[in-house]
């Protein structure tokens, strides 16, 4: 470990940021632990040799962490597929199930503006996730611009598209069996994804 407290804190902070990015990227716990251990070991040795943390990871720790995580991309495609299946099926199933509750009326359906706002939020979340996915190929500035664009587009679409629709009904008529299957598939995909992240597979 770095002997100087300031260096130790700097190393801890760099590893914490990298680890946080790997966690958000969906890297399995075993891989996160392994990478964090290896990075700490390297930074300790580099600092002991009189170099700075930035000499190792550069000035953009997220870009560094993202590039390293992408080296395991083969496995992450599986995570991506599970993520898509889990979210699409769960959201559609839950919208169909909870529509009448949100609507406040007895029949099936939910307010069109609420449904559209939720759907746009899903699209926006997916866009954010895509930017994070390709973070290693983007400069920090470009990533910030893209995040701002996504947020601005979402807010603009709420004002321009969603608000004028108002409280008209948007029926999402699915049979209870279909809704049940969608939610079950979504939960299974989500469970499988969590299990993969928690299982040691190095």
């Amino acid at each position: 470990m770095a002997e100087h407290p300031a260096h130790a804190a700097e190393i801890d902070e760099a590893v914490r940021k990298a680890n946080s990015h790997w966690l958000k990227s969906g890297l399995p716990r075993a891989q996160r632990r392994r990478k964090a251990e290896e990075l700490t070991d390297h930074l300790d040795a580099a600092v002991a040799d009189g170099r700075h943390v930035s000499d190792v990871v550069g000035n953009d720790i997220v870009a560094f962490a993202s590039e390293w995580a992408q080296a395991d991309r083969e496995r992450n495609w599986v995570e991506a597929a599970l993520f898509l299946v889990a979210n699409l099926t769960l959201w559609v199933g839950l919208l169909a199930l909870l529509g009448p509750l949100i609507d406040g009326r007895e029949r099936s359906g939910m307010p069109a503006d609420v449904a559209l706002a939720v759907e746009l939020a899903i699209v926006a979340a997916f866009a954010v996730w895509l930017v994070r996915w390709f973070r290693a190929q983007l400069s920090k500035q470009l990533a910030v611009v893209l995040y701002c664009l996504i947020t601005a587009t979402y807010l603009a679409s709420i004002l321009v598209v969603v608000r004028p629709i108002g409280q008209r009904d948007l029926d999402l008529e699915l049979s209870p069996v279909v809704v049940g299957v969608l939610i079950a598939v979504g939960l299974a995909a989500q469970g499988l994804s969590i299990w993969r992240k928690r299982t040691d597979r190095t």
């Binding site: 390297h42 580099a46 190792v56 550069g58 590039e67 080296a71 083969e74």
Partner: peptide
């Protein structure tokens, strides 16, 4: 060669 750049490469070589 940036020191950190060897790690993604090591991961790929291992994979």
């Amino acid at each position: 060669v940036k020191e950190g750049s060897i790690y993604p490469l090591l991961s790929r070589l291992e994979r």
